[in-house]
Design a protein around this nucleic acid. Structure first.
Lengths: 188, 188, 188, 188
DNA sequence: CATGAATGAGAGTTCATTCAT
DNA sequence: GATGAATGAACTCTCATTCAT
C-alpha cells in the first residue's frame, strides 16, 4: 500500500470516527461509512472489510494520543497535583459530547476478550502516584492498588453517566473533590 | 386486553429478556424474538411494534423486582449493616453472567433521555442511609449526597468491568471494603 | 408448509427449470429465478436458499418422469424391440433443444459426489435386457454388463455432441443402427 | 507485440490453464487469473479482454500438442495396433485429474458454434484407420465412418463419466476391449 | 386474536473495467 | 507497457412490516 493509500486510510478512519461517535458501534454500517467518506462502495472494502476492523483502527488511532496520565506527568508536580491534573483531564473527556465512549463500550460488550492495555498502564501509573503520595506523606491510603482501581471505576461510572443521562460539570467536580478527600487531599 | 393476552404479553417479555441478555439491545431483531417465543411473526406485532418498546417492557418488569436497596432494608439493622447488605447484593448482580447490563447501556446510549427512576430512588435511599449513619455516629462523611453518588458510580464502573473484561470476586470485595473504609466503616 | 406453498414451490421449480435449460447451471443467479417467477426477492428464499438446492429440486422433479427404460418396457416386446424403443426414446431427448443436459453436466462437474441413481438403474436394466436377448438367442454378446455401459457412454457422447455442436438426426440414427449391429441386431 | 510480450502472453495462458483446470470455465473470473499470474489487474487487460478469449487461447495452445491420433501414428504399426495405441493414449487423458475437460464442455455449451477442428481431423484419421484395417482384413466393419464416430462418442462418454463420477481404469479397459471387439479385434 | 406467506427496502460483498500515473 | 486504486453495477441475503385467511 503506497503513501497515497496510507493517507486515504487515515482519512477513512477519521471520517469513521465521527460516524462511530455519533451512532455508536453496532448500529454503524459499511454504507454509513461509505457515505460519510463520499467514496465508492467497493473503495471502502479496499481498506477495511467490516465495521469491526474499522473500529479497531479508530481505537488504535485514539490510543496513540490518549495516555492521559502520561500526558499530565510533569517534573516538579507533587503526586497530589499530578492526580488532580489527571482527574481534570478526565473530566474534559467525560464531558465531551459525541465521544467514542458509547461505541467503545458497545464494542467491548461484543468483543469481551479485547485487549485493554491502556487500562493496565493507567492503573499502574495511578498506583505508583498514590504510593508515592503516601510515602511523601501527602496522602493517606492503606492500599494504593485498590484505591487506583477505585478511581478508575468512578471515572468509568461518570463516563457512563455522562453518556446515558445528564450529569453536570458541578457533579463531576464534587466527585473529584470527594475522591481526593478520601485520599486525605483537599482541593482549595 | 383480556387476561389471556396479558399472560401472553408476559410470556413474550420473559423470552425477550433472555434474548436481550444474550445478544444485547441493538443487535436484537424482531425475528430473534419471534423465534425465541415460537410464535408467529404477525403475532408479536399484536403486542409490540418494535424492539425498543419490547426492551422497555423488559426493563419495566425488571424494575418491579429490582429495587435492591429497598429489598435489603430491614428493621434492626444498623445503617452500616444495611449498606453492606446493599453492596453485597450489588456484587451478586455484578457477577451475574448474561445480565441485562450490556443491553441496558446500549439502550441508554441510544435513548439518552430515558427515565432513570430507579437510580433517583436508590440515590435518595443511599444518601439517607449515610446521613443516618453519620447522625448515629457509625459513619464519617461530610457530604452524604456526593458519597451516595460515589457509591453508585463505583458500582457502575464495576458492572462495566464485569461485562467487558475480567474482574474477580476478590477485586469486587476489595472495592467494597475500600468504599466502606472511606466512610469510616470496616468489614471485620 | 401448506398445500398452497407446495404448489408455489412446484411453480418455482418449473420456472427454474426453464431458466436452467436456457442458461445452464453456474451462470444462473437467484435474481434470474426471481425474475422468471415474477415473485419478490425475499419470496424465493422462503423456498430455496440457493441455486444449488433449486437445481436439485429440478433434477428431482425430472427424475420422476424420466426412467426412460422402465417407460418403454412393455409386455410382448422382444428384448431387441425394447432396446430399439429405448434408443429411439433416447434420441428424442438427445435432439431436444433447451434441455437440462448442459446444466446437469455443469452441476455434476461441480458436485462430483452427487448421487446418480438413475444411471445405476438404467445400467442394470440394459444389462438384463441384453442378457435376456442373448439367452433367447436374439442377440450376440459376450459381456452384457460392458455392452450396457457402452450404450450409456455412446448416448452420453451423443448427448454432448448434440449440446455442444451440431449433430443431425441421421447421424444419431446411424449410431443407433451401429450399436444394434454390434449386438447382432439389425434395424430393417 | 514484442518478443517480451509474447512470452508474457504465453505465461498468462499457462497460469490460466491451471485455473481453468481447477475451476472450470464459467466460474473463473479475471480476478482469479490476475491472482494466479501475480500481475496487475490492468496488466491482464493488455493481453486479454475477458475470460472467453483467454480460454480460447488456452485451447489453442492445447491443440498444438494434442493431436493424439497423429502422435501415435508410426511406421510399421498395423491399423489395429495404432488404434489400440490411440485408445490407450485416450485412456491416459481420461484418467487425468484436473484436466480441461470440464471447462471445455462448459465452454462448448456456451459457445455452441465454436470451431471443433481437432474433432474433424480425428474422425477422418480414425475412419481411414478402420478403412485400412478392413482393406487389409485385420478388421471387420461395414461403415468405417460411423464406427469412427462411435469410438469418439464412447470416448466422450468415458471422459464425462471420469469427470463427474467415478470410473475405474478397469472399466475403461473393458470398454476399450469391447470397442475393439466390435471391430473384430481382440486384445491379448 | 393468530398465522405465516409475501413483499421490498437495504446492507453486505465481489468484480469487470477504467484511468491517472 | 504496467500498475493498482477507484468506481459502480450486480448479486446475495436478511428482516421489518403487512395482510389475506
Amino acid at each position: 500500500m503506497g503513501n497515497k493509500s496510507v493517507q486515504k486510510k487515515k482519512y477513512i478512519v477519521e471520517r469513521a470516527k465521527e460516524v462511530f461517535c455519533k451512532n455508536g458501534y453496532r448500529k454503524v454500517t459499511m454504507k454509513d461509512i461509505v457515505e460519510a467518506c463520499d467514496i465508492s462502495r467497493g473503495g471502502l472494502y479496499l481498506y477495511f472489510s467490516d465495521t469491526r476492523s474499522l473500529f479497531e483502527a479508530v481505537l488504535q488511532e485514539e490510543h496513540v494520543d490518549k495516555d492521559i496520565l502520561a500526558a499530565v506527568c510533569e517534573d516538579g508536580l507533587t503526586p497530589g497535583e499530578t492526580l488532580l491534573a489527571y482527574l481534570e483531564a478526565q473530566k474534559k473527556t467525560i464531558l465531551q459530547q459525541d465521544s467514542l465512549v458509547a461505541a467503545t463500550f458497545e464494542y467491548l460488550f461484543e468483543q469481551k476478550n479485547a485487549t485493554k492495555t491502556t487500562r493496565e498502564e493507567t492503573l499502574a501509573g495511578l498506583e505508583k502516584l498514590i504510593a508515592d503520595g503516601v510515602a511523601e506523606e501527602w496522602m493517606v491510603c492503606e492500599n494504593p492498588a485498590v484505591a487506583a482501581k477505585n478511581i478508575v471505576y468512578v471515572m468509568d461510572g461518570l463516563r457512563i453517566a455522562a453518556q446515558t443521562g445528564d450529569i453536570t460539570e458541578t457533579e463531576i467536580n464534587q466527585e473529584i473533590e470527594y475522591v481526593l478527600g478520601t485520599l486525605g487531599l483537599a482541593v482549595e
